[in-house]
Design a protein around this nucleic acid. Structure first.
Lengths: 201, 201
DNA sequence: GCAATTTTGTAACAAACGTTATAATATTAG
DNA sequence: CTAATATTATAACGTTTGTTACAAAATTGC
């Protein structure tokens, strides 16, 4: 699609890779806590390149959120969707949550949206709508999987898919908070079987 | 206790009131997003008074957290502890949560600890231990109330108080996140009866 | 009333902030 | 090879940041 030959010096960095580095930087330091110097260093580019490619800091932040929402694999949701047995799928979801929030490759803890972006919901324009979209989209994905299980006879026909999807989403925020607070993964994991049980019964 | 007469010009502000204003400012703007000018304006004092009374910004932030943990009434926990019937108490807890996270008097949304402080857990020294204490203390208060209900015969003798306390705490983080994202209180409230049911059964 | 003491308001400080002008560099079109 | 163009790197811009001297103001003890 975008293979039209362009005149001029070619970019020396990959836009998506650099944007991912921005996500990781914001994730650890927060929007206001991450300086442009922090960002350019982590992204491996100079500020003029950053401004030309992504706009100012606020625009970069919005794009980082959109990148996270659209391109980053959410391993807990993936685990939930890919496990055929619904009982095991719910458990796999919570199991994956613990790993996701406490053992992220870049060392950042918790969840980018609920441990970092959330703070500037009231101060950075455009953040709130994105958060709301992230919430509702996640819930839809979960509810869809429940409906599939209902059709497959794995769940009773009156199983309230949407409500249990919201329950699963809300339960998820607990481990996220605990991990960000520095509580060890082991202590968080102890409850996940119980949480899965609460969702299914 | 501290009624020893002191020489010198008397303070023109109340330490606790000003500290509460600092909490509210941090709550809305975050640690890095709140400037010293924001803080002094909200607290109604000049920077030299602030530094003399509370120390630098980081120390003020820690003291604000401690003030919030120790002096601010947590209406959801209060509602939970004061309602004699345990079933109603759990429901009252979640009911109070919705009001607390979406209708705070100063306009700040969510929870100070899980919507604001959490972001700088990795960057501001001393924050993580405080968050961990807040989590475990909350769980202890909830578990204690469950034990009382068990002794009063309102709950079965094998009711897992500590685990359900953690469940209640984790469930709480969902509404906190939703409210901070700007979702209306009405949409959050719809699930609270179900969440209470999940805790009790 | 005078000295001692503590807090106040103003104003300044260096450092760091987000952002951009400028010029050198690396590519393509003709 | 030359002209045109897009991206790079350096360095600077004016603000805002957190923090602190300084002197005026308000109290107590003698």
């Amino acid at each position: 699609m975008n293979d039209t030959k362009k005149v001029g010096r070619p970019k020396t960095f990959d836009e998506h890779t650099a944007l991912q580095a921005a996500v990781d930087t914001f994730w650890v330091k927060g929007y206001d806590g991450a300086s442009m110097k922090d960002l350019t260093s982590a992204m491996g580019i100079n500020s003029p390149s950053l401004y030309a490619t992504y706009g100012d800091k606020e625009t970069l932040f919005i794009k980082a959120i959109e990148h996270y929402m659209g391109n980053v694999d959410c391993s807990p949701l993936d685990a939930f969707e890919n496990e055929p047995d619904i009982q095991k799928a719910v458990y796999a979801f919570f199991e994956a949550i613990v790993t996701y929030v406490s053992e992220h490759e870049k060392g950042s803890l918790g969840c980018f949206l609920s441990s970092c972006v959330v703070t500037c919901a009231e101060t950075v324009e455009g953040v709130k709508p994105l958060l709301q979209t992230a919430i509702t989209e996640s819930e839809k994905r979960i509810a869809k999987r429940f409906d599939q299980a209902k059709n497959a006879g794995q769940l009773p026909k009156n199983f309230p898919s949407k409500q249990r999807a919201r329950l699963m989403f809300d339960l998820r925020q607990g481990p996220v908070f605990r991990a960000r607070a520095g509580l060890p993964a082991k202590s968080i994991r102890q409850d996940m079987a119980c949480w899965a049980h609460a969702v299914l019964n």
